[in-house]
Design a protein around this nucleic acid. Structure first.
Lengths: 246, 246
DNA sequence: CGCGCCCTTGACCAGACTCAATATTAGTGG
DNA sequence: CCACTAATATTGAGTCTGGTCAAGGGCGCG
């Protein structure tokens, strides 16, 4: 076990583990995957992988596609608590049952990992790192749900689809002044509403307003073009209006 | 390394790890604590332990007292993202900086753990388990913030202070029909509001209404008596009105 | 006793929700 | 390929919950 022999001289670790350790744990994870021919399962869009309350037999790794985790109140109200990207783990539980429903948004490739295969040490570290990222995302989502207006919520949601913008160390627009981005939404208006803690009508109205204002364009209902990313970034409420990045 | 030799025969693990494994990792954690005389620091009420953006040098374990983690928007809006109890870890980060402010609610005892002391394997498992519990709590909080009314939020908040009630396998009221509970709030109205995604006025109004309705009593502003726990539990929105537990 | 802080209450307002009608899109079968 | 249908999205009108602003009350502490 080389793990325990590792030297860590970094004065300030990058989060829980240094870069070296991160590489090591990723290797450990990949090794585990390689050895034990674990099941990879394909799901269609809008299929449920597990329900809240199901016994938590195994954990999952999302390889391809997009998945949402949500919880339901007895009267039918729904809150999407996480939207997952490839590389994310899910189904990890503190208790013996899943605490929310996992449903695919698009067609997905999912790796299933039985608990007994998780005793490997290096794997624990990999799981740790995934959870840390998740927790940070949920902190930001709590701010969105608790404190942001409808416009700020939808703007924040759109900014998720622009890599390296609106985050710490945002580079600003490209040199040539071009500052737009186009992407396809994998979620319906209802799913977006349930993720942002709004109603479908409010989501629709906000998107329509943004279109009329010209900050976004819609090729199709699910094909969004952000015309001016910086502008939208300022609409998220997360950035101060005075510290414009252009 | 006994860790890798452990046999796990449980058909369905309790969450990520079996009961045995849980005991093992707790021992590993305690051993680590015992060996390395780690600093224990005392904080007064309403002291900041670290700010958002500070370099994440170390992690912390809350030994005694109560702590909140919050994030601020540039215009001053605040969202409390977690309220911690003794035993909880905090300061764990995916990045090199803390993603939120940690501030004490009451006087606290806090153990500081440098990153280089965290390489031990058994410790990783302990951290894992803490994070899993945290994640589940945040899922529930997301439902509260995204989908619950003011009354439901305050009721849910109060139910946090009643152990073993309002959760899966709730025992219901005692045999003798007594169904009340008294506790002291460590948070001001403003802190409660920022935790529940409401304003101070709304929190105050809801509490006053509950008092007028007779479901709670207030000895002092921060001393709450839930007169009828089952009733309040039904006001949380989490329980179906038809499945009363008495 | 008086000051300051926190909490409560009231009146009014606004943003988001509800309900309802209509428009658009995607999917299906002739 | 087009017509038809079902599902999804948009828009409007009206309502209501919770926010805002402002004033007053209570309590602890010097």
């Amino acid at each position: 076990m080389a793990y325990l022999d590792m030297q860590h001289n970094e004065p300030c670790g990058a989060g829980l583990l240094s870069h070296n350790a991160l590489a090591d744990q990723k290797r450990g994870w990949d090794d585990l995957i390689a050895q034990s021919r674990m099941k990879v399962h394909a799901y269609a869009a809008h299929e449920v992988i597990f329900y809240e309350g199901d016994p938590a037999h195994r954990i999952y790794e999302l390889l391809e596609g997009s998945i949402m985790l949500y919880k339901l109140l007895p009267d039918g109200r729904r809150q999407v608590v996480e939207v997952l990207q490839p590389g994310n783990l899910f189904g990890l539980q503190a208790d013996e049952v899943y605490d929310c429903v996992a449903e695919t948004l698009t067609a997905c490739q999912v790796r299933m990992i039985e608990h007994r295969e998780l005793r490997e040490v290096a794997v624990q570290s990999h799981i740790n790192q995934c959870m840390l990222t998740q927790i940070q995302a949920m902190h930001e989502h709590a701010v969105l749900l608790g404190r942001k207006s409808a416009v700020e919520r939808v703007s924040s949601f759109f900014m998720r689809f622009v890599p390296n913008r609106g985050v710490y160390g945002c580079l600003g627009p490209r040199e040539d002044g071009e500052d737009s981005s186009t992407f396809t939404l994998a979620m319906t208006r209802q799913e977006i509403a349930d993720y942002l803690g709004l109603t479908i009508e409010t989501v629709s109205r906000v998107i329509s307003n943004m279109r009329r204002q010209g900050v976004i364009q819609l090729e199709k209902q699910d094909r969004v073009r952000l015309v001016n990313i910086c502008k939208i970034c300022q609409m998220t409420g997360t950035r101060d209006k005075d510290t414009e990045d252009f």
